[in-house]
Design a protein around this nucleic acid. Structure first.
Lengths: 344, 344
DNA sequence: ATGAAAGCGCTAACAT
DNA sequence: ATGTTAGCGCTTTCAT
């Protein structure tokens, strides 16, 4: 059935021109008379011709595909996808933004491993969301000279000599941490604890650092618990237990992962502490489940859609050798106040 | 900086063999003496050589990428991503499964449109989740002879002459609908209403059909409300209002979309109806937010991970011209009973 | 304004 | 077991 796809040569023959002319009318290179263009286009249309992206890719050394490496995507336990909302919104928006640029968006777990899918490496560029300390992927991309953009900075990364070499979408952990903590403070909390995940990414590390400084500034005693992201609510439960057993109960908790926040809330209520009357809670990442929880839980909405759009935009700029657009002064990420920290 | 990538020729020269030998050692075609293989491999290693996937693709007419078309991905409003949990779990698992097969997974909204990203069409095959009535994409793929797999059947599609031509991952709407309705019935509900979305896909259409038959069989009066998926909880609220205003209040509701179920619950409680005492609820799609809702809401877990794995498996089989594996007798999708329909 | 021809990096006949 | 060579479909000098 599937008759061989028409090639550029078929079109040329049918239009009575050379392949060069066909190529030119489609790429916009060279100059071809409007009348000829018309002929070529209609010939192409009749034949149902579409330029072969792979052949183009071979010549131009550009495939038209960018890869998204999401650290939430664990190759070993895909069913354990952490932070579903963030991942979905980010991936969805990134796909749409890429498509709008005429690029495909490939989902990749981590091409560093031995079984790296060949196609993964064929991408024109990479978006790495939440790179971790000494990220091997970042090292690989850097040494291979493959363009990439990270969402959140590479913690402890050697200071980049050329900042333009590795554009970065700022996730503004510092500002957002302060935002969340100040909000808890203003709501009356004075013993504010922090619950983070254990991935060594900017979000966890910087938040902890800023929290310490903030605590010193406010003259409160810092209390932290770190639990693996993948433990979900159970992780939050453990963190809450740890905090409660460690000393006087906190009257405010900032839990970075949405599921941790949910776990914290359940332990609190089991122990007879009311939210928000006794303890105010803010989660560091927004999710559907927070909105519909009882009480609804306040959170930092990282606006993954916007982050994804910026990441694609920055990567495309880099691919085109243009400077990345500057978003200074356009903060991303916002506090969403819900019942868990609202006026009691 | 980026020195030109080494090519197969560089490796051949360095190993003192022909390009054919290099090609053969990597593809496994032909026969190459083990000793030679060794030489080739180490030469390749020294040079940091990786076969160029694009060039391979050009020759083999296979890129090593499959495309995922998710209907939840609306190009116009990516921030309005519907059914986040399903999308994320499906896409995540599909990506991991593809990668395991050495294939990349490209996210695509709908390559049918005019601004179709070229790369999208370059994929070796497509996975279409939840095709709709007379799906234009399915028509396009069929006529272009591009391999694809649908998750859920194409409603009202002309009966396919060759069933092997368009493999299908069965989402088992019939069985799951009966499962949910029987569960409500056994929990004591007798006026059971149905809330569906308005997308014209198998899930909505078949569920409604099975519901009607089931109602006839149980001799209850069917009561249905259809609201757009994208309206989220607000849609559920409208549906609930419609149902409550239409006659005697239902004592059981099966709401296909998780957010609709949440909306239904909130309207019920606003009107003084208790869940599950007065009305029992089951949602037709599982989500984090249902698990953590109060009361927690029962649901049909469609097991998107498993569906995705099967879809990839079927597509890969098709690409290799093997028959698709048969999963008859291995039901997918299960009822998760939570407080909203548990014993009162 | 148009065309001829040389590859892009690789694979697959077809020798040897 | 290894090598020669002709393309895959396209872009791109370089002529004309």
């Amino acid at each position: 059935m599937a008759a061989r796809r028409p090639t550029i040569r078929d079109v040329a023959r049918r239009a009575g021109v050379s392949v060069t002319t066909v190529s030119h009318t489609f790429t916009g290179n060279g100059t071809v008379a409007p009348a000829t263009q018309q002929r070529v286009r209609s010939a192409a249309h009749d034949l149902g011709y579409r330029p072969d992206v792979i052949a183009q890719g071979l010549r131009r050394n550009r495939l038209g595909v960018i890869a998204l490496v999401a650290r939430q995507l664990d190759a070993l336990r895909p069913d354990l996808l952490v932070d579903v909302d963030y991942f979905a919104r980010f991936a969805g928006a990134a796909a749409v933004a890429s498509l709008a640029e005429g690029l495909g968006l490939m989902l990749v777990s981590d091409p560093t491993g031995p079984r790296a899918a060949g196609a993964a490496l064929a991408s024109d560029g990479f978006i790495v969301t939440e790179p971790v300390t000494d990220d091997p992927l970042v090292a690989m991309l850097t040494s291979a000279g493959i363009p990439f953009v990270t969402v959140g900075e590479v913690p402890g990364g050697a200071p980049v000599d050329d900042p333009a070499a590795a554009p970065l979408v700022d996730i503004e952990s510092g500002r957002l941490t302060t935002l969340a903590l100040d909000h808890l403070w203003e709501a009356g909390a004075r013993r504010i604890a922090l619950v983070t995940g254990t991935d060594r990414n900017e979000w966890n590390l910087r938040t902890a650092a800023v929290y310490r400084r903030w605590a010193a500034y406010r003259r409160i005693t810092p209390a932290m618990a770190h639990v693996p992201e993948a433990l979900d609510d159970e992780g939050g439960r453990r963190a809450a237990a740890t905090l409660l057993d460690a000393g006087p109960p906190p009257d405010g908790v900032y839990a970075l992962t949405s599921n941790h926040a949910l776990g914290v809330v359940s332990v609190l209520s089991e122990r007879g502490l009311r939210v928000p009357e006794d303890v105010r809670i803010v989660a560091g990442s927004d999710a559907e489940s927070l909105r519909t929880a009882h009480p609804a839980i306040s959170s930092i909405d990282l606006q993954p859609d916007e982050l994804a759009r910026r990441a694609v935009e920055a990567l495309v700029a880099r691919l085109d050798d243009r400077p990345a657009p500057d978003h200074t002064g356009e903060p991303v990420g916002q506090l969403v106040v819900r019942a868990s920290s609202g006026s009691a």
